[in-house]
Design a protein around this nucleic acid. Structure first.
Lengths: 129, 129
DNA sequence: TTGACATCTCTACAAATGTCAAGCAAAGTC
DNA sequence: GACTTTGCTTGACATTTGTAGAGATGTCAA
């Protein structure tokens, strides 16, 4: 069965995004990439990554003296998990209010609105058949 | 200044939803309301609520031997917080992909799509002027 | 005034999360 | 072969979150 809804902490998001962008990759590389953003030390990054392996979010493979990490969950899965969490808790599963809130909060450009509209149109079309 | 982005844990969501529905209310009442759902004991509910007071999510007021709690954040604020969190972490702040994901994951009825479309239309109109 | 209740307070404890330093081992370098 | 780098391993500690028992205290009815 597929993973039953994935939830990531803030730090985990930070790590996994870096991993997605550089897969397969070793901890020192990730540490360096994130250093600007986070100022985490190697130890911190390493601990985080190892814990993520235990949780099944990453895999680790030893190659010589290096440990290569890979993501187990895809960006899409993680996104869905996060979105689903918000949907479930904040909106009791109701989609339209969620979209409403989205639109209310951020002011979108006319272009954005166009895009959204066409996304919906497309969806309507594909649903029909 | 307004609260800088509110984030709630799962338990906090559970509590605050009950509070919103019964404000002002005492801990025993909330405990009872949630008992079916969560099987939490009075102590648990109480601890949770008191911690939420410390965090500024609720206020507590003593009346006789009763402590009445009230929400400090509105449902809308909390919803925005949650949504914003997802938007920021999972979608790097990009709104359209988020909506896309929403539509891809859940299959909406034709009616839902209609609703969404009209929400967007309305927004376009109000943005224009 | 004495129970019987309702409520509160205090304290505890385990697991998860956020951070990291120190020491160790393998590899490459002169 | 000694030295420097690079990466790894272990252990640690503070904070937050989840969960709750035990005992204190206030309230009210008989």
């Amino acid at each position: 069965m597929p993973k039953p809804s994935i939830e990531l902490t803030e730090s985990e998001w930070t790590i996994i995004k870096a991993v997605w962008g550089h897969e397969p990759c070793a901890a020192p590389a990730i540490q360096e990439i994130l250093h600007k953003q986070t100022a985490w030390t190697y130890s911190t990054v390493r601990t985080l990554m190892d814990r993520m392996v235990v949780k099944g979010l990453l895999t680790a493979e030893k190659v010589r003296n290096l440990t290569l990490y890979r993501s187990v969950v895809t960006r899409e899965q993680a996104q869905r998990g996060e979105l689903f969490y918000a949907l479930k808790h904040a909106f009791n599963g109701a989609l339209t209010p969620m979209v409403q809130c989205l639109l209310d909060t951020h002011d979108l450009s006319a272009g954005d609105l166009e895009t959204l509209e066409s996304i919906i149109k497309a969806r309507k079309k594909s649903a029909r058949k």
